[in-house]
Design a protein around this nucleic acid. Structure first.
Length: 966
RNA sequence: GCCCUGGUGGUGGAAUUGGUAGACACGCAGGACUUAAAAUCCUGUGACCUUUGGGUCGUGCGGGUUCAAGUCCCGCCCGGGGCACCA
């Protein structure tokens, strides 16, 4: 009979992840294993940051942890390397979905957000992350957004001085104005007039405010929003599909509204050149730099025939001005109304109406050119010819000046426009010397261009700018594609602006002492009238004494996420967003891991805010994120079923994807279905059986009476009408790989996977899926490989069915396996290649098992090596090994090259680059001997017989290639 | 449309600097153990040809550079992400 102890040992041999994980989760919290202090204790600092999640109602999905696991492994590795590691987590908690949810259900966004956060926290805890939760930040909490509001007031109180190339206070600008006017001021601004000190001093307060707002980094101006009259609300781009509202399919138009903006363009050059010093991927840098879109060119004013108005254009090709035969204005351009002639009015208005219903993306993606002639003519200052003025949607109001001089000979879009509308095309660049050049290459020799003739394009650009300036019709200019950031949202669930307006329109910012301005409570989240936010209907908030009103727009979600990484450094500070000492100690983020979908917006805004705070002396570094890794997306499969346009006997009619294809039906509408209804999800055979169809009907009751037809039969009103005795439906769905998102009903929750396989397996499996930076669809099928690996690993520590290790000295072979693994794992962690780390562990365990290795000298350090990847099982083993402290605060093993030296090297021997043999040579064989010995081999003789040996290439430790002719 | 990115066996992927293509897994096939199944273990597994020695082809497609190309260059095709109010 087995004694009690032996039974315990036997049970232990069966590795049970559930009890182990629960135990250590609790202990880590109790012992504050991952709590980090701002006190260095002689350790160097290291800051590992994740992009914090938006707590969506769908819960954490399998895509979220990918980056978190990678950063957690790295953070744990750095900790074991002796660094003081800051590895925090928090929640980006303001946002549209919570408000939409409130509109549908009446549940307050604060409540649903809080519930979601609770769920996220629990889910994150299951994964065994080493976050210091005492530093959690939540952007919707007043103690956090107090500082978001404060930073906004600072942006308002500053302008960008181009002479010092940094932010300076508005107070100092006012001083300059009152002494010298604005002629000497070099600042990023949108004010076009020049005034003297006397003129400034005689302005009213309101006039001064207007002038200053053209300089401030936070200012108000008119911008366009997606306005849906039928819903009475402003819509996010995301809520507009094909020009109509996602909800209800109502028309959407562009409505002009005065809103808050941030002058990010002031920092364009610094944001661009700052990229050089960052350890970011070239791809990401390219994306940011393209977004900023710096281009050098000229702004040129064109006279309009019979009018005092001038049309200003920006062009990167002033050299081609002799080829400018017409002009195109954006349909929204101010001059359109003024210059449009009576006989063209009707056509122009009809055109503008059509354009208004289209989103910017649709306009840019449009292949067909379209436009309307407004009846007016500009004069080309160089050729003095008349240029008809058109409007066209390919010219965007927000880019450049919203107007172009069209050069159909050297711009592809202008060319198709001119061809379509029969406008003049004059060749001005002879590209015959460059047969493969495109227009974008900017090469060739000028022709038909008066004094520019014969010049190369590059010289001609300089010369054209010189002439434009000397004629006083324009000047050389740098233009940016990037626009100022729209910072107002007509929504409830965001940070209120700490802004009031007096009865006569004077803007005031709340002082620091009055912050935070808390979001007023309400039960009604419907928008206010005329596109205003729900706050406008809360009188106690919006209307103050003496006719003073509050700003009722709120800030966008990007506000809170633009500086959260600084708050983690000192999250409970009530006097400042973070103390000087905390900022000085932590400096900046050493490693930032997050999705590529944030590559531009979030990362650019954060850099902008950080640079501003740096200018004002609040943060010690100019850039916030030293190194950045973009994890790829774990994609979902979007499963849809086809709804035919035509009803069948008055009922909706769904049809199998295969039949749709066979019958060549083109206008059927794919409708996403919840993936939980789909059988064989994610495969070519993904389909809905009868049970799946019934779940679908329950989920979308409106289709209760629909026909669901596939080649096995039809389901109608709960009755299955079979073809050829088929017992079940096999309605094939359309499967597309795409974002895992609540809106596609394809979110896969990690909880079940963890419950079944354990967090260690889940962590290692997500890493094993592939390179961290690559996107890949979620696939659970091969998780068993990782599960088997951990079970095998566990049993390494057992001998004679007991947890026990041998204290014998390891063999040369065992040492080689171990040190080879240490080397590989260390190198691969450093290059963020975690999938190959997992492979290396698998190989190591397979090899040690073959040798029946049970030696402490190997397995104990191996356990530390694995700890960052599988924190639970390694902690349990560590305790069983007799340690009382945590494995996660031990020291990472070093490798010693001496154990890795090979006695012989296996060389592939190639003839003309093709491998013909494999042969072992002693590792110290010289190059000459390798050549000689290789040629003497039987196989080589066979292949070289009767042929000339031209050359022998020996790459030490790699290969031998013999080149033969004949 | 523009910008970024990826494409390698049946599947996920490996090959870090131009140097043995397919590591490590999954799946599949065969075998061992078992009354049986599960679990576990072992063997095989890119395709085609084969006299069983081996040979030919093969990294989305078409060209090119090189002794040598998955990797570099040119031109295409297809998937994914972003395009300023989803986060």
């Amino acid at each position: 009979m087995l004694c009690f102890k032996a039974v315990v040992e036997l049970i232990k041999m069966e590795f049970n992840h559930q009890s182990i994980e629960a135990k250590w989760r609790t202990q880590w919290v109790e012992k504050q294993t991952y709590k980090v202090s701002n006190d260095a204790q002689g350790k160097p600092k290291f800051y590992v940051l994740d992009m914090f999640p938006y707590p969506s109602g769908a819960g954490l999905h399998v895509g979220h942890p990918l980056g978190y696991i990678a950063s957690d492994i790295y953070a744990r590795y750095k900790r074991l390397e002796g660094f003081n590691v800051l590895h925090p987590m928090g929640f980006d908690a303001f946002g549209l979905p919570a408000e939409e949810y409130a509109l549908q259900t009446g549940i307050h966004p604060a409540k649903s957000t809080n519930d979601n956060i609770k769920q996220y926290r629990a889910q994150l805890a299951n994964l065994g992350f080493s976050f210091d939760w005492s530093r959690e930040v939540v952007t919707c909490e007043p103690k956090y957004y107090k500082w978001t509001q404060w930073i906004f007031t600072q942006l308002y109180a500053n302008y960008f001085d181009q002479a010092s190339n940094k932010a300076e206070s508005i107070a100092s600008l006012e001083e300059t104005f009152s002494k010298d006017g604005n002629a000497t001021v070099k600042a990023a601004n949108s004010y076009t007039e020049v005034f003297t000190a006397a003129q400034w001093n005689s302005m009213t307060a309101l006039e001064k405010q207007d002038v200053l707002s053209h300089y401030r980094l936070a200012f108000r101006q008119v911008g366009y929003v997606n306005w849906c009259e039928a819903l009475g609300t402003v819509l996010a781009n995301d809520q507009v599909i094909d020009g109509v509202s996602e909800r209800g399919g109502h028309p959407v138009e562009q409505k002009a509204m005065t809103q808050w903006y941030l002058r990010i363009t002031a920092y364009a050059d610094r944001l661009l050149y700052g990229l050089d010093n960052l350890e970011w991927s070239d791809a990401l840098k390219a994306m940011q730099s393209n977004w900023i879109g710096r281009s050098e060119g000229a702004s040129v004013f064109f006279d309009v025939e019979g009018s005092d108005e001038k049309v200003e254009v920006f062009t990167t090709r002033p050299d081609t001005i002799y080829g400018a035969t017409y002009m195109v204005l954006a349909p929204e351009h101010d001059l359109v109304k003024k210059l449009c002639t009576a006989d063209q009015k009707e056509a122009v208005e009809a055109y503008i109406k059509g354009v208004k219903s289209r989103t910017e993306i649709e306009r840019m993606a449009e292949k067909q050119v379209s436009g309307a002639f407004i009846g007016a003519y500009a004069i080309n200052p160089f050729t003095e010819k008349k240029m008809p003025i058109w409007i066209g949607e390919y010219v965007l109001a927000g880019y450049g000046t919203g107007a172009i001089m069209a050069v159909p000979s050297d711009d592809d879009r202008d060319h198709s426009f001119a061809t379509k509308f029969g406008l003049d095309i004059i060749d001005v660049v002879d590209k015959s010397k460059y047969p493969n050049a495109t227009n974008a290459d900017k090469v060739g020799v000028m022709i038909n261009s008066g004094p520019l003739n014969g010049l190369e394009v590059k010289e001609a650009i300089t010369e054209a700018c010189r002439q434009i300036e000397s004629r006083n019709i324009g000047k050389a200019k740098v233009n940016y594609k990037m626009r100022d950031a729209n910072f107002g949202r007509q929504r409830y669930w965001g940070e209120p602006f700490p802004v009031t307006y007096s009865a006569d329109g004077i803007v005031s910012m709340l002082p620091k002492e009055a912050l935070p301005l808390t979001l007023p409570d309400t039960t009604d989240f419907k928008p206010g009238g005329e596109g205003k936010s729900p706050l406008s209907r809360i009188a106690s908030f919006a209307q103050l004494e003496n006719g003073v009103t509050r700003e009722t727009d709120t800030m966008p979600a990007v506000a809170g996420s633009s500086w959260y990484f600084l708050r983690y450094m000192d999250p409970h500070n009530e006097e400042a967003f973070a103390s000087e000492s905390a900022l000085k100690y932590w400096q900046d983020v050493d490693l930032y891991v997050g999705g590529a979908e944030h590559a531009v917006s979030h990362l650019l805004y954060s850099r902008f805010w950080h640079k501003f705070l740096f200018d004002k002396g609040y943060v010690p570094t100019e850039e916030p994120f030293k190194k950045l890794i973009n994890q790829g997306m774990i994609q979902g499969v979007i499963e849809s079923i086809y709804l035919l346009r035509e009803k069948k006997d008055g009922d909706y009619h769904f049809m199998c994807a295969k039949m749709i294809e066979k019958m060549g039906i083109e206008d059927a509408v794919p409708m996403p279905v919840h993936v939980s209804f789909v059988s064989d999800y994610g495969t070519a055979q993904s389909h809905l059986n009868i049970a799946g169809l019934k779940s679908f009907i329950k989920w979308r009751p409106i289709y209760g009476d629909a026909y669901f037809e596939c080649d096995k039969g039809t389901l109608h009103k709960g009755r299955w009408i079979a073809k050829e005795d088929a017992e079940d439906s096999f309605l094939l769905t359309k499967s597309e790989v795409g974002k895992m998102s609540k809106r596609y009903y394809n979110v896969i929750n990690p909880d079940e996977v963890i419950a079944e396989h354990g967090a260690d397996v889940f962590r290692m499996y997500e890493m094993f899926l592939g390179p961290i930076e690559q996107s890949k669809p979620w696939d659970i099928n091969s998780i068993s490989g990782v599960s088997k690996f951990l079970k095998k690993y566990w049993t390494l520590f057992f001998s004679e069915e007991k947890f026990q290790l041998s204290d014998e000295d390891p063999t040369k072979e065992e040492l080689k396996i171990f040190h080879g693994t240490v080397k590989k794992v260390r190198q691969d962690i450093e290059r963020f290649s975690f999938n190959t780390c997992v492979s290396a562990f698998m190989e190591c365990v397979n090899n040690l098992r073959k040798l029946n290795c049970n030696k402490r000298a190997i397995l104990e350090p191996l356990n530390i090596l694995l700890a960052p990847f599988a924190p639970f099982v390694t902690e349990e083993i560590w305790k069983e090994l007799g340690h009382t402290d945590s494995v996660h605060i031990s020291a990472y093993p070093q490798f010693e090259e001496k154990y890795l030296i090979e006695d012989s090297i296996s060389y592939p021997i190639c003839i003309n680059g093709k491998k013909r043999a494999l042969h072992d040579f002693p590792a110290d064989t010289s190059k000459q001997d390798l050549e000689k010995q290789a040629l003497a081999l039987e196989v080589v003789k066979e292949w070289t017989e009767g042929k000339d040996i031209k050359k022998i290439i020996v790459v030490p430790n790699k290969m031998i290639n013999i080149v033969v002719v004949g």
